[in-house]
Design a protein around this nucleic acid. Structure first.
Lengths: 213, 213
DNA sequence: TAGATTGTTAATCGATTAACAATC
DNA sequence: TAGATTGTTAATCGATTAACAATC
């Protein structure tokens, strides 16, 4: 299935966007699409789209283009969505609760198994049928349950400690919302969501724009 | 002050990370740092760090390196943090409330002026002294108050409509959490936080890693 | 002064775009 | 078959890294 090793991060980061646009077209009963048409919607060049897709296979057909349903299925598979992932959230504060409440991720196959927090007021509370546990149980819970992805939503100061517990109990992927760069072994995958950095990019651009005037 | 026009997006996206590391060093009473030392902490090459900083000015000194406090101040200014920004949040659901509760952004100079939602159960509620208003008041509110940044936290289906209201009332920057690419005039700045895309990047990488084994 | 480290130019690397033969 | 559009190679563009003279 894999055609090309070492897919560049630039390509990988575009895949979810293909997935989203194809899903949308599928919902609108679009049967087929050419790289040129897709280019106009998604904003990548037609050439780039063909290059990107060809990293993974010959999904198109000359003179026809791409079958939307088939391509969607392929991209879903490439993104790893043909299986399910068991997740835990650590930190039931603002962001932790927000993520826990998102039904969007369930539909993609990410199953929230438990939530952990240190605050006694939160422990025992339920978010969509998942009970918030004492963070002291985290290590034990991980030993008894296979977890694919740990979602870190604790304050900056505690993030590395939580990460260490996850890693030492075999969790291989971390979705990190704490504004810190975690230190982990090479075989652990980290995906950061640094909201402040996103906001500062916005203020940079807004300011740059205003200076030009 | 500006040395070089057309700073590339690659450089811009690294600036907030410099800002974060410098803040941390400042808190740890570090006085000066060389590009080589910073490189070891932040993970960019020393060469890249010097190139990046030189887009904006000669902040270093041969034989000495960079003064942490000065550089922090410079980067803060470049990121537009020497002024304040008035913001509104539209959508008081999971993400909207989480963002409203973040005190981190206040400290950087982002002042939440109001929150809007369509849900009667939420209207009138207060989040940290800010009252949730009926979304029908949004347009009027924007006409009476200058707002720098609109933060869109409504469901996908309503995001474009909200964006249109913001834009037609002169809002020039949008921080968008809805999983959709907004259609806006060229002079409006959009910064997207697409959480699903981030999660799918993670599942891609996790899957790729497991295939190799 | 000698050592350190910048600012900056040149070399390399990688990603994007253009072009076109292959083929449905 | 003729037209359309892919897959893929080659050309271009941009970003990163290396090297080193300038200078604190």
């Amino acid at each position: 299935m894999e055609r090309k090793r070492n897919i560049s991060m630039a390509v990988i980061k575009r895949l979810p966007k293909y997935h989203r646009y194809l899903r949308e077209m599928l919902n609108n009963d679009v049967d087929r699409i050419s790289s040129k048409e897709l280019s106009e919607k998604i904003g990548f060049t037609a050439s780039q789209i063909r290059q990107d897709l060809n990293c993974f296979g010959d999904f198109g057909q000359q003179g026809y283009g791409y079958n939307v349903k088939d391509l969607y299925t392929q991209i879903s598979g490439i993104l790893g969505l043909s299986r399910e992932y068991k997740t835990v959230i650590i930190g039931a504060g603002n962001i932790g609760q927000a993520i826990a409440n998102y039904t969007r991720f369930d539909k993609l196959g990410f199953e929230l198994q438990s939530i952990f927090d240190a605050n006694p007021k939160l422990i025992g509370m339920r978010i969509r049928d998942v009970e918030i546990q004492d963070i002291d149980n985290l290590s034990n819970f991980l030993k008894r349950n296979h977890i694919d992805i740990g979602i870190i939503c604790v304050p900056r100061i505690n993030a590395q400690r939580v990460s260490d517990v996850l890693v030492s109990n075999g969790v291989k992927a971390i979705w990190n919302f704490a504004p810190v760069d975690l230190n982990t072994p090479e075989d652990v995958i980290i995906e950061n969501v640094h909201l402040s950095e996103s906001l500062l990019t916005l203020s940079y651009l807004l300011n740059e724009r205003e200076e030009e005037e």
